[in-house]
Write a protein that binds this DNA or RNA. Structure first.
Lengths: 201, 201
DNA sequence: TCGTCCAGCTTACTCAGAGTAGGTTACTAC
DNA sequence: GTAGTAACCTACTCTGAGTAAGCTGGACGA
């Protein structure tokens, strides 16, 4: 075991450690129920250090969210490079997303919960993450779709993000649904539309 | 003005009044930033009364959420009765929803924010509201669609709810988009699918 | 070898706001 | 009237965010 007094480590390293612990505690207990004292104790440091580095409880949350967002961006962007067409790009992006939420549950849970921080920086931060994904999709669409109507295209992008977010939460309740299956479900509705499944009577 | 000491009113009426004020304060300040003292003061009553009737801050929030949900259920269910077919029912339901979020902003803002109360009753309550809408859609679909695959149908319903929720939030930023236009955008993607809009190249 | 500097760290507080104990008043029924 | 109780209050406790002020160990120049 790495016993001994784990003391005096450089700021950058300590920050990484704090974020790691905070992500765990926030996603386990929820933001409101998590206490700075507990996080400090788990890190093995006193509370004022957290405030020294992150200014506030919300600042610490912000750092966690930003980190999760960076990872999400990385994986989804990487996934779509080299896609043959719109359908392929969409499918690859969706798959990357559904894999992310399965493999990095804590990060995802930070991103999905709105935080009761309406109007505060943290809420904006979560919203910013969605905007990131929306922009990605909007960009993708503008490359492959006729966009005589920008507003409509924007709405469609929002629509896709919201739908996938909800489907992702649904997946949490359904262990048996693999990321691949989830992607197929999403593509089914998104690409073909519900009309294709309507009973002809 | 209804001056004078507005005192001693029956419990039911006082509760309604409290919920009304609380809905305002919660949606204006956000759950965390709202204080029970302020709500009590605005109601014109002392704090222990709030606790007498709702047990806790979260209990008060719960009451607000339940009320909003009841209204949402009412309007969307009413909207879909007498629809000719699946497409019509979907369109009517969507329109009712988009009208609701425009006309009852405070109620909607309570329902959309996740509250940082993971695992607590309030979070379940918001989730319950989505389930209500999901069930509505699932029921609608099972009436009009071939459902050889229940899981797929359930996923599709979640998908629709998530997509509309996000589109609704997007509408908050776009005053110029009417509920009718929002409904059209939603139907466009949902019913016809993105394939219909893909550039043929 | 010794100062001195400062990043990393601490103890010991304040303060706001959730929640409560226990008492007071005004209506209602007889 | 007066007994009973629903509606209401004052005056607390206690938890947890945030802060003031000071301690310490090691790098680095003289």
């Amino acid at each position: 075991m790495t016993t001994a007094k784990r003391k005096r480590m450089p700021r950058a390293e300590r920050e990484r450690q704090m974020i790691e612990v905070a992500e765990q505690v926030f996603s386990a207990r929820g933001y409101a129920a998590a206490s700075m004292d507990e996080i400090a104790e788990l890190v093995g440091v006193s509370k004022p250090m957290l405030y020294e580095y992150f200014n506030s409880k919300e600042g610490l949350l912000l750092a966690c969210i930003r980190q999760s967002r960076a990872v999400l961006r990385e994986v989804t962007e990487q996934a779509t490079v080299g896609a043959a067409d719109a359908e392929d790009a969409l499918r690859r992006g969706l798959l990357a997303f559904f894999v992310f939420i399965r493999e990095r549950r804590q990060a995802w849970s930070l991103l999905r919960h709105e935080m009761a921080l309406i109007g505060t920086p943290a809420a904006d931060e979560v919203e910013e993450t969605r905007r990131q994904q929306t922009d990605l999709i909007a960009a993708l669409m503008s490359g492959h779709f006729d966009s005589e109507d920008d507003l409509r295209a924007e709405a469609a992008a929002e629509f896709v993000v919201g739908a996938c977010e909800r489907l992702a939460i649904w997946c949490e309740r359904h262990e048996e649904v693999s990321p691949e299956t989830a992607t197929e479900y999403a593509m089914d509705v998104l690409w073909s539309g519900l009309r294709a499944r309507a009973r002809t009577h």
